[in-house]
């Protein structure tokens, strides 16, 4: 039973053709599941139709019709065969990707498997080519019983559940459910115990993970992720007791964004490894956990 639908405004924009392309993908996917919204969309199309038949007429010259007919006649000779789409390997290999809505199937890479990337222990994502670059369109897959790190949204995020189910503080979401998250709505999805949950998601801006661990595995900033993983793997940083958790989060933010930060330390470049972090030794001294020395001096 679908409980979460796109609102009237989004549906009318979809039917009038003024909604952003990527969001239309989400609405179309929802319509695949939802009778109620299909019916509403049909009515909104009818409104378009009645506006069309009411609107003021503008004379169209005879030559337009003549041109059209010759175009049609030229085209009649060419009978375009409808090519049957070969099954994508990514569909046949994966039970989760069977019976996807047609519009989503169209987004799968042709003749290639999807590239899944792990984002933390229970979440995987695979980006989809959606023909635009305003939104990030991707599959999100939460393993059964898995919890996704608490996160916030820098922009609009639309999620349509395709398979399985997940829940957060606000409710339980099952296939077809259409969720819209606005910036500032922090949530922490958890998949149901019995099966993995596959979601189709459209994000306007990078999602921000808000928890401490979340900052280490922020899924939408891979440059930061690789770096922060290296930081986390380093024996110095993975020591159980940090002098200040807050200090580390500030450090990671500083590395990721290259902004002037804590205590006048400036990060002038993006380090290739931990050894390249100019204030490496400095941090270790502060936290009192360092067993090794990088041989570099702190700029601060």
């Amino acid at each position: 039973m679908i409980k979460h639908h796109p609102d009237h405004n989004m549906l009318v924009e979809y039917c009038a053709g003024t909604l952003d392309w990527a969001l239309c993908l989400g609405v179309s996917t929802h319509l695949h599941f939802c009778n109620e919204c299909r019916s509403a969309a049909a009515n909104l199309n009818s409104l378009g139709g009645s506006l069309l038949s009411q609107c003021g007429q503008e004379a169209v010259g005879q030559e337009v019709f003549a041109g059209l007919m010759s175009k049609i006649q030229a085209q009649e000779f060419v009978v375009a065969p409808v090519a049957e789409q070969a099954a994508h390997p990514s569909i046949t290999n994966d039970r989760m990707l069977a019976q996807l809505p047609k519009v989503v199937r169209k987004l799968l890479p042709k003749g290639k498997a999807l590239r899944w990337q792990s984002v933390g222990s229970s979440l995987k994502m695979a980006r989809l080519a959606a023909g635009q670059d305003k939104y990030e369109v991707a599959f999100h897959r939460i393993c059964s019983g898995g919890k996704v790190a608490e996160h916030d949204h820098g922009g609009l995020e639309v999620t349509v559940v395709l398979k399985g189910s997940f829940s957060d503080g606000d409710g339980i979401y099952t296939p077809g459910d259409f969720l819209v998250r606005q910036p500032g709505e922090v949530h922490r999805p958890t998949a149901a115990q019995n099966e993995d949950c596959l979601c189709f998601s459209i994000c306007e801006a990078p999602v921000r993970l808000t928890g401490f661990l979340g900052r280490l595995i922020n899924p939408f900033s891979f440059r930061k992720t690789r770096l922060t993983r290296r930081v986390a793997r380093n024996p110095c940083f993975s020591a159980p007791k940090f002098a200040s958790v807050r200090f580390l989060t500030i450090l990671i933010q500083a590395i990721g964004t290259g902004i002037p930060t804590h205590k006048g330390i400036r990060v002038a470049f993006l380090p290739q490894s931990c050894e390249d972090i100019p204030f490496y030794g400095c941090l270790c001294k502060q936290s009192g956990q360092c067993q090794r020395s990088s041989g570099r001096r702190c700029h601060g």
Partner: peptide
């Protein structure tokens, strides 16, 4: 914002088949 890499087209999104599925 157009990126030409995808083969999803207008008729895939505003799919007529959707309208042909039964609903009240």
């Amino acid at each position: 914002h157009l990126v030409n890499s995808a083969d999803v087209e207008v008729d895939d999104i505003w799919d007529e088949e959707l309208d042909h599925q039964p609903f009240v």
